[in-house]
Design a protein around this nucleic acid. Structure first.
Lengths: 103, 103
DNA sequence: TTTATATATAGATACATTTGAATATATCTA
DNA sequence: TAGATATATTCAAATGTATCTATATATAAA
């Protein structure tokens, strides 16, 4: 299960959203990402680490290169979580709170 | 249209995720939120401002109180965005990049 | 083995964020 | 009007983040 706070932190940077979009139609290596991002190599490396640790991107070493690709299931999980979070539930914590306030 | 980076920043704090869950089944005023969160009043006020500015929560003043509620449409928009972002598209920027790399 | 290339790590700097204490503002009630 | 209550704002401290330069590591090519 994804750490949702970590995932949203990973998503809350414009450059990382661009990286995700760049990976949305296949694999790319880090050096390919330079083409679309105005960042140095260590900065991209740093962003890729954050995306991997959050579970949004996977890396596969291929000789000298590293191929990055999206974990599609992770994005589905984030979507489900947002819907779950924002939807009324039977056992929602807010019901406990309201009860405490009323008693 | 929501600023997605701002939205993800708003979502990338555990206390704010709790606040959203608390609001998921109706309205609450800030003072109700103290019951479930171990934070001071100014800190909650600060979090509510961030959630509002991101477009996730709306506030309606009711005399001495402020009633906060979720903007359900905003959560749907975030979900759609995540799916769009992580899905292969005809005119994806990664296609332009790959073209540039190959030429 | 030497050199070139792809990526990662360390360290530094600038800036942003979370939080709380103190204070201000707005509204209700006596 | 005076006091009480709900919320917002200001300021400061501690911590976190994005970015760069310099350097290290790993692999491929000559």
């Amino acid at each position: 299960m994804l750490d949702k706070v970590e995932v949203f932190k990973a998503l809350s940077d414009y450059k990382r959203l661009l990286i995700i979009e760049m990976l949305s139609c296949g694999k790319l290596c880090a050096c390919d990402l330079y083409a679309g991002l105005n960042l140095t190599q260590p900065t991209i490396s740093h962003h890729m680490k954050i995306l991997q640790q959050a579970g949004l991107v996977k890396a596969k070493k291929n000789g000298k290169w590293v191929n990055y690709s999206l974990c599609k299931e992770a994005f589905n999980e984030v979507c489900s979580f947002i819907q779950f979070l924002s939807t009324d539930k039977e056992d929602c914590i807010c019901k406990t709170i309201k009860k405490e306030i009323c008693n």
